[in-house]
């Protein structure tokens, strides 16, 4: 479990804090999505949680261990996949993983064996001796994953982990993250790929300008969305649109009409349209996407 308690980070020379009094909790067996615009404070929050940056105030507990005061113990409980690729580009893949394994007291022989397994698991078995500077963007991301998987910690900090991955890589990560959830691990996952996040996250935390706007779970997200009817009417005309406007906020683009917050059920709408002589090719209820929700949220925040 990862808990951020009144976490604040101010950088020298900047008028506003990068992270401003954020409270966050990532429970065991949960994937918490972290969503925000660029510069919202997602990466800073994750870096503090990883023990890379120091908070100005507040604290982060990793399985009840303070990441600042009990750094060595807390770091054994987490792994971090950074957004960028901060590895020594001149290093070779296998020796670098063996080097990292040494910090966990893993004997050299065992470390080599484990590193080989991990490289094979992320599809880099042919690149054991390859220098990282020759790796493609996707290979680098896979190497980052292997680095995080060296030990099997309870908590995962994944910062824009899906960036730069091909569909196969995305599928691999999706499977890995879901497996982590099945193993009751706590996963903090930031991403700009909101559709993926929507599919993976149990809860989503929205941050904007360093502040936590809201944390919602799947059910809340569904409830919070605006119900809308999407109706395809091939012979649509002004009369049809006039009728739909009596049911709610209606607008049309070509043969497709949308009615927000309809006052009656969809089958009643279809029946009435048919009775009035219109052909209804398609009619179904939509809820707002995570993206729309997020944009509405930061619109309110402005």
């Amino acid at each position: 479990m990862i808990v951020a308690d009144q976490l604040t980070k101010r950088f020298p020379g900047r008028p506003t804090p990068a992270v401003d009094d954020i409270d966050l909790e990532v429970r065991d067996g949960e994937i918490l999505g972290l969503v925000g615009l660029n510069g919202a404070g997602k990466t800073t929050t994750i870096r503090i949680a990883a023990g890379i940056s120091l908070p100005t105030s507040g604290k982060v507990l990793v399985d009840d261990l303070d990441i600042v005061r009990e750094k060595r113990a807390a770091s054994r409980h987490l792994a971090w996949v950074p957004e960028l690729f901060p590895f020594d580009a001149t290093a070779r893949a296998l020796p670098l993983l063996v080097y990292y394994a040494g910090f966990y007291g893993i004997p050299r022989r065992e470390a080599r064996s484990r590193a080989r397994e991990l490289l094979a698991r992320v599809g880099l078995q042919e690149e054991e001796r390859g220098r990282l500077r020759h790796f493609s963007q996707g290979m680098r991301k896979r190497f980052s994953l292997a680095s995080a998987m060296l030990v099997d910690p309870q908590n995962l900090l994944l910062d824009e982990i899906l960036n730069g991955l091909d569909p196969q890589g995305i599928a691999f990560v999706r499977g890995w993250v879901l497996e982590a959830r099945r193993q009751r691990k706590a996963v903090l996952l930031s991403s700009h790929q909101l559709a993926e996040l929507e599919a993976l996250a149990d809860r989503v935390a929205f941050v904007h300008r360093g502040r936590l706007l809201r944390t919602v779970d799947r059910a809340e997200l569904a409830r919070a969305g605006t119900p809308t009817l999407r109706i395809v009417i091939p012979n649509i005309d002004a009369a049809a649109l006039a009728y739909l406007a009596t049911l709610g906020d209606a607008h049309a683009e070509g043969p497709v009409a949308w009615v927000a917050r309809p006052k009656i059920e969809s089958h009643e709408v279809v029946a009435e349209l048919v009775r009035r002589g219109f052909h209804v090719a398609e009619c179904h209820r939509e809820t707002t996407s995570l993206e729309t929700y997020f944009l509405e949220l930061i619109g309110e925040a402005r």
């Binding site: 990883a50 750094k71 060595r72 590895f87 020594d88 910090f103």
Partner: peptide, 20 residues
Amino acid sequence: RPRFSGSTDMVLVRPVTRRG
């Protein structure tokens, strides 16, 4: 150089302290 390139971060995330 490792600090400027960020590769020190990949060590700092391990069970070591900054001072250590």
